[in-house]
């Protein structure tokens, strides 16, 4: 996905968020704040430039930045993230936990197939379920 404003959706899993404030403090677009309940909250989603800082630096794995409906997919060349030298994500070993597997593979299938499928469904997944 290009680094264009407004082409991403930022999802926070409140059950996993501890409200440390790293995402809110270092976000270049000030997309998130820590609200009165002590959790991060998305307030200016349209300002997100898809830099990925919050997702890489969330110690609790509680943030997901995903492309919005109909947005173009991020180029592999632009992706300076860690997964660059990685093999295809599909080649990853099968996760044993049933919940994230289903959700993740579903999300991937949706993304690769037509990019039409709502990313929302995938976003509302496992972190809300505590084992």
């Amino acid at each position: 996905m290009s680094k264009k404003k407004g082409s991403t959706q930022v999802t926070i899993f409140p059950d996993w968020c501890k409200g440390c404030g790293i995402c809110a403090a270092f976000c270049p677009g000030k997309v998130m704040i820590v609200d009165q309940t002590g959790k991060a909250k998305v307030v200016r989603e349209e300002e997100c430039i898809n830099c990925g800082f919050c997702e890489l630096h969330c110690p609790d794995f509680a943030i997901m930045v995903s492309p919005k409906n109909g947005a173009p997919e991020r180029d592999a060349a632009q992706d300076d993230g860690p997964a660059a030298p990685a093999p295809a994500p599909e080649a990853a070993p099968a996760p044993t936990a049933p919940v994230p597997k289903a959700a993740a593979s579903k999300a991937k299938a949706q993304k690769t197939a037509a990019k039409k499928a709502p990313a929302k469904k995938a976003a509302q997944r496992d972190p809300n379920k505590k084992a």
């Binding site: 609790d60 993230g81 990853a92 936990a97 999300a107 084992a131």
Partner: peptide, 26 residues
């Protein structure tokens, strides 16, 4: 970037209690 969090969730043991015990911001 959504693949980052999804990837990590694939490698976690979801039968353990989450969020983890580490302090906020650790």
């Amino acid at each position: 970037m959504s693949e980052v969090t999804q990837l990590i969730h694939q490698y976690l043991r979801h039968n353990k209690k989450f969020p983890h015990v580490l302090c906020p911001g650790c």
